[in-house]
């Protein structure tokens, strides 16, 4: 049973999955409660475009991905704040554009469908030392910033007008938050892919909410569920030789189902 842990690629996958599994739900709770979780999927696809563009152009992937994703996310925020376009509409436009560009760039690269599969569904088994160094350098900084602005983020999530009246620079905090989301998504795209990025931002949070706890408890529950899904997904996919990303998604859906049953039983 424990022979799985003798493989370096498995240990790297567990480490990468763990740190992303903690930070993604923490970002996710602020998106889910504001009914803005679709931005995770949109920014994941933007990151994918940037990664493919780096393959075509030879520009370094991580800086290009972070730059592109941050720029697009701030543009979406600007649209939202100007109220000229609804936030959801802006997301749909950007998502369509990203998918279109993905198709064009795929046709322009010489890369096969295998690499695209990894970008879409996760390449945890291909995480390297550089990926780990980047994750373990940047994600703790992201978590620290989130910790410092946690009360402001909660207040803005409760009511933006109230936050503004109490002196908060709502646009600034929102911009900082979306930049943090963009950075984490850019870091995660090559290791866990588009599907898992969207999944881990949303589903553990929604599952945790079903247990009807306070805000901090919900964060801890969602991070716990996310970690358990990642570890069990990696282990099960190793022994059953199945796609890791898909396994993690299905385990998250299983937890969501348990949460629904728990809610029904406690009515």
């Amino acid at each position: 049973m424990f022979e799985i842990f003798q493989y370096d690629f498995i240990l790297r996958a567990l480490l990468a999955g763990s740190i992303l599994g903690i930070v993604l739900p923490i970002l996710g709770i602020f998106l889910v409660v504001r009914r803005y979780s679709n931005i995770a999927d949109t920014l994941s696809h933007v990151s994918l475009v940037a990664v493919l563009a780096s393959i075509v152009t030879g520009i370094a992937a991580l800086p290009l991905t972070i730059f592109t994703t941050v720029l697009v996310s701030l543009g979406i925020e600007k649209f939202k704040q100007s109220q000229k376009i609804y936030g959801e509409t802006a997301l749909a436009i950007v998502l369509s554009g990203s998918l279109g560009l993905t198709a064009i760039l795929i046709s322009a690269t010489k890369q096969g469908s295998a690499q695209l599969f990894n970008f879409l569904f996760g390449g945890l088994n291909f995480v390297n030392q550089t990926d780990l160094i980047q994750l373990f350098t940047v994600v703790p900084i992201v978590l620290l910033i989130l910790f410092f602005i946690r009360r402001e983020l909660l207040l803005i999530s409760l009511d933006e007008e109230l936050a503004s009246a109490e002196g908060l620079s709502v646009n600034l905090i929102n911009n900082i938050f979306i930049i943090l989301c963009s950075i984490v998504i850019s870091l995660g795209i090559t290791s866990i892919g588009v599907l898992l990025l969207s999944t881990l931002i949303v589903i553990p949070v929604v599952s945790a909410q079903l247990f009807k706890q306070g805000f901090v408890s919900t964060i801890f529950i969602s991070a716990f569920l996310s970690l358990v899904s990642i570890w069990s997904g990696i282990i099960l996919s190793f022994y059953f030789n199945l796609a890791t990303g898909g396994m993690i998604v299905m385990i998250n859906l299983f937890f969501f189902t348990i949460g629904i049953l728990y809610q029904q039983l406690n009515k």
Binding site: A208, G214, F215
Partner: peptide
């Protein structure tokens, strides 16, 4: 603000969370 008591319904927040959100 107007309709404040309706905007917080989807949040997993307790009364303590609301009280503690006062900066």
């Amino acid at each position: 603000p107007q309709r404040l008591n309706q905007t917080s319904l989807n949040l997993p927040t307790t009364v303590d969370d609301i009280l503690n959100s006062n900066l």
